[in-house]
C-alpha cells in the first residue's frame, strides 16, 4: 500500500530555509511500522533524512517522535493505524520540548540532566554481606518493574503540557525515575529524596493532564507515579507546600461537607496570614464580584454528609503505608 510521509526537516548547516517539510510516498506492506517507512526513505529515496533508531522493537528508546501530532515510538506504531478512507497520510515531526539538532534528531542533554538531578541510583547505607542479596518479597519488588520498564525515550517529555510553558519543570521521566527509588524497599534515602522533590519545579508542578500517561509506549504511567510521590510526601510529613496544603484543604472540604468549598480553597491553601498571596487574589475577586461569579461564602453541607464521613473514617485508616 502507498503511504505518504510528510516529514519536518531542519538542517542547521543549510543557508536556505531553516525549517521545512518534505513529502515522500513509499510502498509498504500491511504490517509495516512508521519506522520501516522512514528507513526505506533513508536508504532508498533520500539519504540525508536524519533520525535516531536502533532496536526496532520498542526497547532502546531511540525513535520517539511526533506522528500526526502525538509523541510515539516509530518502531511500534503501524502505518495502517492511520488509514482513513483508504489513504494513509503521516505527519512526522521531531519530539517536542527539546531543541532540534537536525531533522528528527533532538538534543537530549536537558532531558538527561534532569534525570541525573534526582540522584538516580540506589542508596542503601547498609548493603547485605558479600554474596548475600537484600531479602525482599516479590510483591515488594515486582511492582517496580512497571516503572523500570521505562526506556527513557522522551515521549512523555515531548508532550508534557507543563514543560511547554516552563522548561525548569523536572518532567514526567525524571519524576518517574525518582519514584522508582522512593518506592524501592532497599533504598533508605526516601526522606532526602522527597524533600528535594517537593521543591519548586518538582512533583507539585505537574498539572495532572495525563498526556504522559497517554503517550507512554511502555505503560509506565508517569503521572500515576507523580501522584504516588505526592501521597508519600504527605505521609512522610512534607506538608508545607502549596501543593500539599491544596490537597489537604480539598480533602478536608469533601470530608466535612461532602463537596468542594471553592471559597475557602485558595484562602486556606495560601493560609489566611499570607498577605502577599492573598492580595494577589484581589483582582480576580473583584472581577468575579462584578460578574456575580463568586462561589457562596457560606458553604452548606450535603444532606448525607455523615455517610461520607463514615467512609472517610473507614477508608482513610486502610491507607497502605509504604514499606
Amino acid at each position: 500500500m502507498k503511504v505518504e510521509y510528510k516529514v519536518k526537516r531542519y538542517n542547521p548547516e543549510s543557508d536556505v530555509a531553516l525549517e521545512s517539510f518534505d513529502t515522500y510516498v513509499v510502498e509498504l506492506d500491511q504490517a509495516a511500522t512508521v519506522l520501516d517507512g522512514l528507513i526505506k526513505i533513508r536508504e532508498e529515496v533520500d539519504n540525508t533524512l536524519t533520525l535516531r533508531c536502533s532496536c526496532r522493537s520498542a526497547i532502546c528508546g531511540s525513535c520517539a517522535m511526533r506522528i500526526n501530532g502525538q509523541a510515539m515510538l516509530a518502531c511500534n506504531t503501524k502505518v495502517s493505524d492511520f488509514e482513513e478512507n483508504g489513504n494513509i497520510k503521516l505527519l512526522v515531526e521531531p519530539p517536542g520540548n527539546m531543541p532540534v539538532i537536525k531533522d528528527l534528531v533532538v538534543d537530549f542533554v536537558p532531558f538527561w540532566s534532569k534525570v541525573k538531578s534526582v540522584d538516580p541510583w540506589l542508596k542503601s547505607s547498609h548493603p547485605p554481606k558479600y554474596m548475600e542479596e537484600h531479602i525482599a518479597s516479590n510483591e515488594s519488588m515486582l511492582h517496580l518493574s512497571g516503572v523500570m520498564g521505562c526506556i527513557m525515550c522522551g515521549a512523555c517529555v515531548s508532550d508534557c503540557t507543563v514543560l511547554e510553558v516552563d522548561k525548569s519543570f523536572l518532567g514526567p521521566a525524571a519524576l518517574a525515575k525518582a519514584y522508582r527509588f522512593v518506592s524501592d524497599p532497599r533504598d533508605d534515602s526516601t526522606k532526602f529524596r522527597l524533600k528535594a522533590l517537593e521543591k519548586p519545579s518538582g512533583m507539585w508542578d505537574c498539572t495532572r493532564c495525563m498526556q504522559c500517561v497517554e503517550v507512554c509506549p511502555k505503560g509506565v504511567d508517569p503521572m500515576g507515579r507523580i501522584m504516588k510521590l505526592r501521597d508519600f510526601a504527605i505521609q512522610d510529613g512534607y506538608k508545607n507546600t502549596y501543593g500539599a496544603k491544596h490537597t489537604a484543604v480539598f480533602t478536608d472540604s469533601v470530608k466535612n461537607t461532602g463537596w468542594l468549598n471553592e471559597f475557602q480553597l485558595p484562602l486556606r491553601t495560601f493560609g489566611i496570614f499570607n498577605v502577599f498571596k492573598l492580595l494577589g487574589l484581589l483582582p480576580i475577586l473583584l472581577d468575579a464580584l462584578v460578574s456575580r461569579k463568586v462561589p457562596p461564602v457560606f458553604h452548606h453541607k450535603l444532606p448525607s454528609v455523615s455517610s461520607i464521613q463514615r467512609i472517610f473514617k473507614k477508608v482513610d485508616l486502610q491507607i497502605t503505608k509504604r514499606e
Binding site: 542503601s124 558479600y130 542479596e133 519488588m141 517496580l144 523500570m148 532497599r186
Partner: peptide
C-alpha cells in the same frame, strides 16, 4: 549479587531471595 546491590530488582523466590 553485586548487580542486585547496585539496584537491579530481580524476581525473587518464596524466601525473598533471588529466584
Amino acid at each position: 549479587i553485586s548487580m542486585e546491590h547496585m539496584g537491579v530488582i530481580f524476581n525473587r523466590d518464596d524466601q525473598g531471595k533471588l529466584g
